[in-house]
Structure formats: C-alpha cells, structure tokens
Design a protein around this nucleic acid. Structure first.
Length: 488
RNA sequence: GGCGCGUUCGUCUAGAGGCCCAGGACGCCGCCCUUUCAAGGCGGAGAUCGGGGGUUCGAAUCCCCCACGCGCUACCA
C-alpha cells in the first residue's frame, strides 16, 4: 500500500479561521497517524480575493499549533511550486487537452449574459445553471473566435447516469448527472478555478486523500467527472462536518468568524486548542476528553470522524485551556506570567517589571487562570499606590451595611498598624487579620471581603494575606484608609 | 426552488440489534475543602435517542415516510 499523502490547501484570503484550521488538523493527523506525508499548498487562483499577509498568517497559525508539513511553498519539495498562481501553465495545458479531446469547450458568454440568464431562470422558478449556449459551437468557429474574444473553458459534464461519491465519512453519495452543470474550469484571465486546479495538483502531488469541509460535497461530482475525463484515478474523499457558530451556521466572515490568531492573542495554549479542535468531530473512545498531541498522532483515524456539524463551544475551550495551564511547570509558568504582564499591564506601569515580585505571585495565579490574558488584570493592583477604582458600595456588600464595613476597616487598620515594616510578612498578616475575629465577633470569611475590595478593588482574586504581604505596609494601610474615607 | 448532508443530555460526543429504563466530558446545581475567587474532591439534575410507521422475540442501532436544520446552487474557494 502506498503511503498516505494529504494536504491542506487554503486560499490566502485572510487569517485562517478555526474551522478552516480544523480541516488542516485532521488532514495532518491522518497523514502523521499513518506514517504518511502532509503538504501545504496555496490556492491563490482568485486574484480578486487575495489579502496581503495571508500566507504568513497561515504559516503562523499552523506552526503555533505544531502542525508541520513535509512539502510546501516555503520548503519546496518534489512537486514545487506549491503555489497555484505559479503553476498556470499546467492548468492551461490540462484545459487545452480537454478541449482537444472534446471534453471541454470555450465559452464566450459574458458575465452580463450569465447574470441575465440566472436572473431569468430564477424569475421563472427554474433551477439556475449554464444553459449550454456555447457547448456545441463548431470547433472551427470556436477556434476563430478564440483569437478575437475572451473566453472561459467549460467542462462538459456527462448529463446521463449518476455519479457516486464514496465518501470516507458519509458512505456513498449519489448525484444525478442530469442535474449537473457545465462548470468553468479555466477563467478568462487564464487562471483555473478550484475544480481544475484541484485535480491537476492533487494528481501531480500524489495526494491520496482529499480531506475538506462538507461545503465541498456538492461539487464532488464535478471533481469525479473531471478525474474521469482526464483518465486519472481520483483521490479518496473525506468531507468533514462543518464547525458552526452559536447561530448554528457555518463559521464564516458573517457568522462568528474567528481567526485562530485571535485565540493566540487571547492567551490560549496550542495544546488546548489542538485538543479542542480535534475533538470537534472526532473522538478516540467513549471516555477521552483530554488528549495530547502524541496520543492524537498515535490514534487518529478518519473513520472515527462523525458526519454531523459541531458547535464551537468557547466554554469547553476555556476549560481545556485552564487544564493545560495547570500542567505548566513552575519555571515556565513564571515566564508566562512575566511575558503576559509585560505585554498587557497598563503602559503607565514602568518597565521592566519587578521579576521577583512576579515570581512571587505566579504560583498564586496558576490555579486561577483560564487564559493567559487573565494574568494582567488580576495583578494590576500590585502596581501603583492606589487600588484599582471600585464602587464604594462593594465594600459593604457582603457585611450588611456601611457601619459594619467601617468597623471592620477600623479594626484592620488598628491591627495592621501595630505590625512594623520589618515584621510585615504573610504569617504576620494572617495572624493580625485572623486575630480580628475576636474583637469583631465575626467570622473571617465574613468580613474578609471588605479587605479584599479595599486592597484590590474587588472581592475576588489572589489570596489576601499574600496580597498585603507583597503590597507592603505603606500601601496596605493607605488603601485601608482610603476605603474608610470612601464610606464616610 | 433544486440537489445534497445532517438530526443521541444546553454543548462536544460514546453507541455499529440484546452489555443502554443510554456512558464520558464541558456547562449548570449542591456539598466538602477553604482568607475571597479559583483549583480539587464528592454528589445531583439533565436525552421518552427529531416525529411517525415498519422489520424483529427484542431497535438509539436495520428499512420507509415526514419534519426541521444546515450546505451548495459564481469566470469564490
């Protein structure tokens, strides 16, 4: 059996979104799981839709996830070039051959005529489709006009019988040929359409399995017939279920389109994203919900891919991200905290940041972080003299009234003022604050919220004793006084 | 409109005739732990397997019909 070769063939029309990347993940995983090769090919046949920078975004997205390719535009390979705009002669040759063999024809219909035709069809409630005006043009006339007019090359679909797609995920899908349309294979600008380029490239690049999104399934008969007309053996096909947004529609520019790189910027981990993506449509067994890259590559199999669309559930991604964050080793975690703090703390805070301080809070943050983007907001209170701004009402929210809050603040002030700067550490803080239970006749867990708010501006965050110890005597006392004033 | 694909807890899924009065995970709820919040532990609610007909001793699993959702219907991919 020949080795499996799959490819990811995005068009450079912007930052790839997660649905698109998921296709890459599956194609890659299938190749790797079977000891095959994975290729990257750029499908830039639509010159009008090119977006500068897209190719770099594709590389970056793939590399971030740890998806590696054996052949591609950047590293070359035996079937270079891997960019379709650099392979035009191949497609044009294929089109010419098709014409010579009577399997395709030049079409001189203008875009305007085509539009009018479709409008008329739709008005008459007829199914839209090319009406075949140029299908039977005499070859001499076609030849002559080709010197004078622009033309496209249309493929002559067989209009009788059926075409059967043997899909790896869905089984046999049958299409009536009578309903098929003569599609454009080569555009008037000399560029191929996806359909032609696909066949030419997948064949030449020895692709064994075409793995693509479900939106391609209806054009499968075109591809199958093209392969057939060109006397080529088609690849196997696997049409992946769509990833849909909250509205249950395909992820797209219009509907919750989310570029993978947005998640990178948001502080998601590649391992979490990979884990998340691969379980959208595939499963290892009835139990596994956490899966490593290694396990994935050892066990991925295309026949465990389901056919129904999957919803992109951010809650699930967040859980996985938190899970993977907790797996990070202490030193690496300190580095992440440092990097993300440097990057995301307000610019008003002087850089470079105090590394020792960050190393001190890092462990406190570890269990409380879902995305790396959460880091900076949870530690800003440690920088600067004042606590972040807060609504004074939150001070007394949990203790039942302003006077209670005042009583608590006064007691805390008294107790903490008694600790001198030299003895100001976590143990002393704990002793002093716990010691308030007696005089206040109140449980620590009850009154502590007042202190949290006074110190860090909100009632939840990293542990109080650590916070005030790190903050130091002056800033702690001044924040407590400030809170006290706010209540007057 | 036509063609195609799909339909198991809110979500992702397991399930390929009896192991299923349907399992796991996220989310949700409760309890425990606890200086808050998390994290962690334990427990719970949650799916008459889209509906209706069959086949069978027996169906989420096989067949048919229907409904709904989505995709495609370009000189875009």
């Amino acid at each position: 059996m020949t080795a499996i070769r799959t490819r990811y063939a995005p068009s450079p029309t912007g930052d790839p979104h997660v649905g698109n990347i998921r296709t890459a993940v599956f194609a890659w995983a299938m190749a790797r799981a079977n000891g095959g090769q994975f290729l990257l090919r750029i499908e830039d046949t639509d010159q009008a839709r090119l977006v500068p920078g897209s190719i770099e975004a594709i590389y970056t997205s793939l590399r971030w996830l740890g998806i590696d390719w054996d052949e591609g535009p950047d590293i070359g390979g035996p079937h270079a070039p891997y960019v379709q705009s650099q392979r035009l002669a191949k497609y044009q040759g294929a089109a010419a051959k098709l014409i010579a063999e009577g399997r395709a024809y030049r079409c001189y219909c203008t875009a305007e005529r085509l539009d009018a035709m479709r409008a008329a069809q739709s008005a008459a409630k007829q199914p839209p489709g090319y009406d075949g005006r140029c299908r039977d043009l005499a070859s001499a006339e076609s030849e002559r006009r080709s010197q004078l007019e622009p033309f496209t090359v249309r493929f002559k679909m067989r209009k009788t019988g059926q075409t059967v797609l043997r899909d790896l995920i869905r089984g046999d899908v049958t299409f009536e040929n009578a309903l098929q349309d003569d599609f454009v294979a080569l555009k008037s600008d000399g560029f191929p359409t996806y359909h032609l380029a696909l066949i030419v490239d997948d064949t030449e690049m020895r692709i064994t399995h075409a793995i693509r999104g479900e939106e391609w399934i209806s054009s499968a008969p075109k591809h199958l017939q093209l392969y057939n007309a060109m006397g080529l053996e088609p690849t196997a096909f696997a049409h992946l279920p769509l990833i849909v947004g909250a509205d249950r529609k395909k992820l797209s520019k219009r509907s919750g389109d989310t570029a993978l790189l947005d998640y990178v910027r948001g502080g998601y981990l590649p391992a979490a994203m990979l884990n998340f993506l691969v379980l959208l449509g595939w499963s290892l067994d009835d139990k596994t919900s956490i899966i490593s890259r290694e396990e994935l590559l050892a066990h991925f199999s295309i026949d465990r891919v389901v056919a129904n669309p999957a919803l992109f559930d951010i809650e699930r991604l967040n859980f996985l991200n938190g899970h993977y964050i907790r797996q990070i080793e202490t030193r690496d975690w300190e580095r992440e905290v440092h990097d993300w703090a440097e990057r995301q703390l307000p610019p008003s805070i002087p850089r470079p940041l105090d590394r020792e301080l960050l190393a001190e809070v890092a462990p406190l943050l570890h269990e409380r972080t879902a995305t790396l983007g959460d880091i900076a907001p949870s530690i800003t209170f440690l920088f600067g003299d004042e606590a972040p701004e807060y609504d004074p009402a939150t001070l007394s929210e949990k203790v039942g009234g302003t006077s209670e809050a005042v009583r608590i603040l006064d007691a805390a002030l008294l107790a903490l003022d008694a600790v001198d700067a030299a003895g100001w550490d976590k143990a002393a803080m704990e002793q002093a604050i716990r010691g308030l239970e007696g005089p206040l006749k109140m449980k620590l867990r009850k009154f502590v919220s007042v202190l949290y708010v006074a110190i860090m501006g909100k009632a939840q965050g990293i542990p109080l004793f650590d916070s005030v110890a790190i903050l130091g005597r002056e800033r702690t006392l001044s924040r407590l006084r400030k809170a006290r004033h706010l209540l007057e």
